[in-house]
Simulated assay, not measured.
Amino acid sequence: MTSGFWKRNQQTLAPALFLAPGLLFFAFYVLFPILQSFQISLYEWDGLSPAQPVGLQNYRQLFDDPAFYTSLWNNLLWLVLYLLAIPAGLAIALFLNQTVTGIRIYKSLFFFPFVVSQVVVGLVFTWFYDPTFGLLNTLLGAVGMDPVNILGDPSKVTYGIIAAGLWPQTAYCMILYLTGLNSVDPEQVEAGRLDGAKGLRMLWHVILPQLRPATFICFVVTIIGALRSFDLISIMTQGGPFGSSRVLAFYMFEVALSEYGFRMGYGAAIAVVLFGIMMIYIAGFLWKMYRDERGA
Rank of each mutant, 00 (worst) to 15 (best):
I175K: 08
S183V: 00
L178D: 03
T215R: 07
H205Q: 12
V220S: 01
I207S: 02
D231Y: 00
L211Q: 07
L211P: 13
H205G: 03
R193D: 12
I233N: 07
Q238R: 15
I233K: 07
Q210K: 08
L203I: 05
Q188S: 12
D231P: 04
A191E: 04
I207R: 03
V206A: 06
L208G: 02
R201Y: 10
R228K: 15
G225N: 12
P213T: 04
G199F: 10
G180Y: 01
G240F: 12
G225V: 04
L227V: 06
G196N: 04
V221A: 15
K198F: 14
V184R: 11
E187M: 11
K198M: 14
I223W: 00
R228N: 15
R201T: 14
L211Y: 12
T179S: 15
L176G: 06
V184T: 10
Q188R: 14
P186R: 06
Y177N: 02
M202G: 06
S229R: 01
G240Q: 04
L176N: 06
G225I: 05
V221C: 13
I217E: 03
T237D: 15
A214C: 10
I175W: 09
I235Y: 07
P213D: 12
G196A: 01
G180M: 09
T179F: 03
F219A: 12
S234P: 00
K198C: 10
S229L: 11
V189I: 15
R228F: 02
R228S: 15
R212E: 11
